[in-house]
Structure formats: structure tokens, C-alpha cells
């Protein structure tokens, strides 16, 4: 359990239609780190995340998770290690009820039924969605869907959590709840997002992507203070760091 690290070395990725989305990207993320990946639309965030659990394979270069290279042969191990939370929870909640959905992963991993039930109940309680267990996914609110999607991933007991825009389309209260929930996890966390205020709350380290390469990589506060980098990446300082519009003090 001690080395759930992520290493990308000189990764290039070109889509079948010829668009190059990642160019010579190298990074190392250590065990237990919480890292934000920020950048404008089309900067390569989602493509990068897709490499972390073998949805995509690099055209050139190598991806290494916890000491295992991400190749076809290691996929089942990689996918148990890396829990992926998709941008649109509707894509992730495909089973008829919340319970079935959360049980999908553990059942596929071959756990005995009683163990599956225990896990499902426990993760649903963790994310505060226990009362929803018999509901169909389309009868949930945005925040509830997000919580269940996280539970479905947690039920597989991953060591690394990868999230794509977890706060997108959430109302402020649901967003706050989610951030509080994420705070309680000790997993290695990688979050791709436009929500820089959440990054301030959750991640000590930030990686800025621009045009498929790393523009900056360092402590979150340092990067967010550097307006030049943010501007170049098509970003803006988080609201909490901007001057107060009422009293003009920061």
C-alpha cells in the first residue's frame, strides 16, 4: 500500500483524427498527494486522465501506476487501483437502481454476495446516500448522482481517486458537501477541474496544462499568485484570491 505513485514519462497522445492532445508530458505524483490538474478547455485534461486507468494508451512514452506499467496485461490490476469518477454521473450510473450500481464493481471483482452487500451499505453511508439505495439513478438530484458515483467507485476500494470536474453542475450546497466529503479521504487524489476555489481547499499541488504540455507544476498557492501563468493558460485567479469587489481589498 505504500507506493501508490503515478509516473508519466514523455507521454505523447494523438487521436485517430490526427489531433495531438498530449505532447511530451512527464510527471510524478507521490503516495497520498492531492493534485489538481487545471487548464482551459481542450488543454488535454480529460485525455491525461484517460491515460491513468488505461482508457487510452500513450502513442509514445509510458505510464506507470504503483510500479506497474499501464498496458493491456495489467489493466485489471490498474483499474482496481485507480478509481475513476467521470464528468457526467449519468454515464457512470448505468444500472437500474443505486444499490445495483454500487454493487456492480464489487460483483465483477468476484466478492461473495454477503461481502458485496456489506461494502455497498458501508460506502453508501460514507457518502450519505444510504437512504437512496432503492432509487433509480434518474430520480436523483445532481448532487446525489455525484455522491452515488463516488460511492460506486469507493466500493471497489481503490488506492487512487481520479476525478473529472467533480463540482460541475452542482449547486453551492452540494458542492460544499462534496468538498467536505473529499477532505475525509486519504486516497491519492487527482482532480481535473475549472473550480479553482475548490483546488485551494483540497489540493496542495497544482499542475497547469496548456496545449498538451505542462506549463507549471508546483504548490497551489504559488501558482495561483502567478497571474502571468494563469493568463497564459486561459485561467483566472480563484475568486477567493481576487480583490473584494465591494471593499477592493484582497
Amino acid at each position: 500500500m505504500s507506493h501508490h505513485t503515478i509516473d508519466l514519462t514523455n507521454v505523447f497522445y494523438t487521436y485517430p483524427d490526427g489531433t495531438t492532445a498530449l505532447r511530451n508530458l512527464s510527471l510524478h505524483i507521490g503516495h497520498g498527494e492531492a493534485v489538481a490538474i487545471v487548464g482551459s478547455n481542450g488543454s488535454g485534461k480529460t485525455t491525461l486522465l484517460s491515460h491513468l486507468n488505461g482508457v487510452l494508451f500513450p502513442t509514445e512514452g509510458a505510464v506507470n501506476i504503483g510500479g506497474y506499467p499501464v498496458v493491456k496485461e495489467t489493466l485489471s490490476h490498474i483499474r482496481r487501483t485507480v478509481g475513476m469518477i467521470f464528468q457526467n454521473p449519468d454515464d457512470q450510473l448505468f444500472m437500474p437502481t443505486v444499490y445495483d450500481d454500487v454493487a456492480f464493481g464489487p460483483l465483477n471483482l468476484g466478492y461473495p454476495p454477503l461481502e458485496v452487500e456489506k461494502r455497498v451499505m458501508s460506502v453508501l453511508k460514507t457518502v450519505g446516500a444510504y437512504a437512496l439505495k432503492d432509487r433509480p439513478p434518474y430520480r436523483l438530484s445532481g448532487g446525489q448522482k455525484r455522491a452515488v458515483a463516488i460511492a460506486a467507485v469507493l466500493a471497489m476500494d481503490p488506492a487512487i481517486l481520479v476525478m473529472d470536474e467533480p463540482t460541475a453542475a452542482l449547486d453551492p450546497l452540494a458542492r460544499r458537501k462534496l468538498i467536505t466529503l473529499l477532505h475525509t479521504f486519504s486516497h491519492t487524489k487527482i482532480i481535473a477541474t475549472h473550480d479553482l476555489d475548490m483546488v485551494l481547499d483540497l489540493c496542495k499541488r497544482t499542475i497547469v496544462l496548456h496545449n498538451g504540455t505542462i506549463l507549471a507544476d508546483g504548490p497551489t498557492l504559488e501558482i495561483f499568485r502567478n497571474k502571468l501563468i494563469l493568463e497564459q493558460a486561459g485561467l483566472e485567479q480563484p475568486f477567493s484570491m481576487q480583490n473584494c469587489p465591494v471593499c477592493s481589498k484582497s
Binding site: R79, G83, M84, F86, Q92
Partner: peptide, 16 residues
């Protein structure tokens, strides 16, 4: 995307 989400949770052709 759904297919990928399924793969990420150990889908191997069988739906329990």
C-alpha cells in the same frame, strides 16, 4: 463513455 465507465468497474461482458 458508458462503456468506459463499465470497464473501469471491472466489466467483462457480464452484467450482474
Amino acid at each position: 463513455r458508458i462503456y468506459q465507465a463499465m470497464l473501469c468497474r471491472g466489466f467483462d461482458g457480464k452484467v450482474p
